[in-house]
Every structure is written in structure tokens, then in C-alpha cells.
Computed example of a mutant assay.
Amino acid sequence: MSGLSDTERAECAKILNLMSKGDVLSLSDTVTNKLIVVEHVKEAVETILSFTKNAEEFLRRKKVYRELIFKYLAKEGVAMPPNSEKHQLVKRTLELWSSRKKLIRPDRHRPQETACDSTKVEAGFDPLVLGQQFCQWFFQLLNSQNPSLGQQPQDWGPQHFWQDAKLRLLSRTGSEQMDEFLGAELVNLRLLALTRDERLLLSPNLDTQGLKVLTSPHGLVLVAVAGTIHRDEACLGVFEQIFGLIRSPLENNSWKIKFVNLKIRGQDALGGTEVAAPSLSYNSTELQLLCS
């Protein structure tokens, strides 16, 4: 009987789908000690998942190469330095899967939808869960536009923003610069330029230090998240991003972005401090003012 949770099975299957047929069949022989003979990849994948004791055992298998885990994380919107060692990638992958297991409804056996346009408010909904789901969706979508990842760009566009959406971008990379963009099209294009043109990868920190979610009685949900910024092998600095989300009653009560405040600090502005898991500098009082 498999020791993997439903979430881990699904994610391990994604990694197996990145492997060559020969490696999948070889791994099936390894996990079953050649006691079960398989001929097809689909059968081999199911066998591997069924006979794997836990997620860490799977990730540490020799056939699950470092490059495979790196590619998997990139596709999931998690940017890691390309020179990361395998044990670092394994640790980050396990953290990602652990956070996703927390998103499973107590009365369901599958994760909640993570796409922004299918996330609805329900009675007793958990704002923190919504914030985690939104960040996973948003950064995976935005990072997919980066051509250096070599993957098919996902459905990015102005449709995810309110028509009067506003972006405030504060950049501290040598000198300080503040820019504002108004309207769904301009906000969409400026954020798109970060990944498509500037080739940045934004990796959010979704633990308790890096993510805060507040709600207002007027229907606004505020999601604040911190993370690191990468380009190729370099970690360029950190970011803090605040999203204002409001449901659209004309579009199945889906969530759309009302405003974005993005603050970027380059390495020179950090004074050599550790940026592996950045924390939010905003306190709850400051965030509450944005909800009013």
C-alpha cells in the first residue's frame, strides 16, 4: 500500500512524466526489486507510486536527477538558483508539497482548485488558504512567461485584473524609483515585462513569515507575500508584493486583482543579509490601512 498522500502521488507523477521511458522502467525495477515486471510507462508509473514508502525516498532516488527536480520546481513557479544541490531541491520540493497538503478540504479527498478564476468565497472560507492558492496560481502563471524556463507560457493577460486596476512599483536597486500604472492593460504589460523581457523569476515564501492575508467587511481580500528574485544563476534580491482581490459578480464570483503594490530590493540594498526565506516587513496595522 502506498505511503504517498494523494497530493504527493500527483506531484511525483509530474516528475515521472519528465523522465525518459528507460529511466521510468528502470526505476520501477528498483523500487520493486524486479519482483514485478512492467512493459509500459503508464504501468511503471503506477507501480512506482504504489511501492514508494514516502515522498523523500522518491526524490532521493538516483534516477530522479537533480535537473529533473529543478525543472519540475520551475514549472510549478518555484525559482531556485540553477547551481542548487540536489538536497536543497529535495528540501524545497518537500516544503512545497507540505504546503499543498494543507490546502486539502477536510471533507474532500482532493486539493482545492488553485486557479484564480475558479476560487470562490464560501461560507466559513479560510482567507489564508485563499492567499496560498492565489500566490501559487499567480507566480506559476507569471513565471511561465519567462523564456529562459523553456516552457509553454500560460494564460496571462488583462482578464485577470479589474479595468481600473493599479500597480505601484517601487524599485531599490542602486537608486530608488517609483512608478505607477493605471488600467488592466498597462498593469498586465508591466508585470509581464518583469518575466518575459527582464527574465526575472519570482519565488514566493509561503510560510507564516512570508505570507499574510487580511479581509475587509467590504469584500476586499489583501494578500501580502515576500520572496526572492532570480535571473539565471544569480539571486538578485528580494520582493514584497501586496495584492488587493475583489470578486467579480459578473464572472461567476471569480477573484480579480484590484491593485498591486510591488517593492523590489536589490542585493546592494540588502547589506549582505540572508535572502533565502525573506519575511514581510509590513505589520498588520500597515496592511489594515490598505483594507480601509
Rank of each mutant, 00 (worst) to 15 (best):
G183Y: 07
Q288K: 14
H218S: 12
G150L: 03
C235E: 14
P127R: 05
E8K: 03
V64T: 04
A276Y: 06
S28G: 14
S216M: 06
I242Y: 03
T173Y: 09
H160A: 07
W156L: 07
S118L: 07
V129D: 08
K102V: 07
L211K: 07
C116D: 00
L202C: 09
R61T: 01
K14A: 12
Q112E: 11
F243I: 07
G210Y: 08
T285W: 06
L16T: 01
Q209F: 06
G174K: 07
D268A: 14
W137T: 10
D155I: 13
P111H: 00
N283G: 14
A269E: 13
G22A: 12
L201Q: 02
P249N: 05
C135A: 12
K75N: 12
A13R: 15
V38E: 06
S84Q: 01
W156G: 05
P204W: 15
R108P: 00
P204D: 09
V129T: 10
A123H: 09
E185T: 13
L96E: 11
A44Y: 08
N143R: 05
I69H: 09
R231P: 07
F70G: 03
G237D: 09
K21D: 13
S254I: 03
L130A: 05
S254A: 14
A224E: 15
S203W: 01
K34T: 11
G237E: 06
Q154C: 03
F139Q: 05
V38R: 12
S248D: 15
L290C: 12
R110T: 15
I229Q: 02
L170I: 09
N146K: 12
D117W: 08
N54Q: 10
F239R: 10
R190N: 11
D268S: 14
I36V: 15
P158Y: 04
A79M: 15
E57G: 03
L206A: 07
E185D: 14
D232T: 03
S248F: 07
D29H: 02
T215D: 02
L262K: 04
L130N: 08
L262H: 11
S2Y: 01
R247V: 13
Y65G: 03
S5W: 05
K86P: 15
D207H: 08
T119Q: 14
N261W: 06
R9N: 11
V41F: 03
V64W: 02
S203A: 11
P204T: 12
Q88F: 10
Q151N: 04
H218Q: 13
M178E: 15
S84E: 04
E198S: 15
